[in-house]
């Protein structure tokens, strides 16, 4: 039974490098191509919270340390 969790991505810290999106094993992250932050950059966001397994891959690879990960207490 995989873990459940969710991530919070700081919109202003995100530079839209897409590294978290390509390394997410369950494809629950995406780059928001219709909106930008105050620096004019697209940012990543969590598309489906049910899919997140709190693996921390996105937070480990994130160059700007913009991702915080929470895990459901069993």
């Amino acid at each position: 039974m995989p873990f459940k969790g969710y991530v919070e991505i700081s919109i202003e810290s995100c530079k839209g490098c897409n590294l978290c999106v390509i390394h997410c094993p369950t494809d629950c992250l995406a780059l928001n191509t219709s909106d930008t932050n105050s620096y004019g950059l697209h940012y990543a966001y969590l598309t489906d919270e049910d899919k997140c397994i709190a693996c921390q891959n996105c937070s480990v690879i994130c160059p700007d340390a913009a991702i915080t990960v929470y895990k459901k207490v069993e």
């Binding site: 969790g5 969710y6 202003e12 810290s13 530079k15 839209g16 490098c17 897409n18 590294l19 620096y39 950059l41 709190a54 921390q56 937070s59 480990v60 690879i61 994130c62 160059p63 700007d64 340390a65 913009a66 991702i67 915080t68 990960v69 929470y70 895990k71 459901k72 207490v73």
Partner: peptide, 26 residues
Amino acid sequence: YELIYKRPKALVDVRMHYCPGCFHST
């Protein structure tokens, strides 16, 4: 839910000037 990963406190909470995807910031 419990917190399992967050930005280290020793890393100052400012925006780094590096290009998107640069390993310097990692």
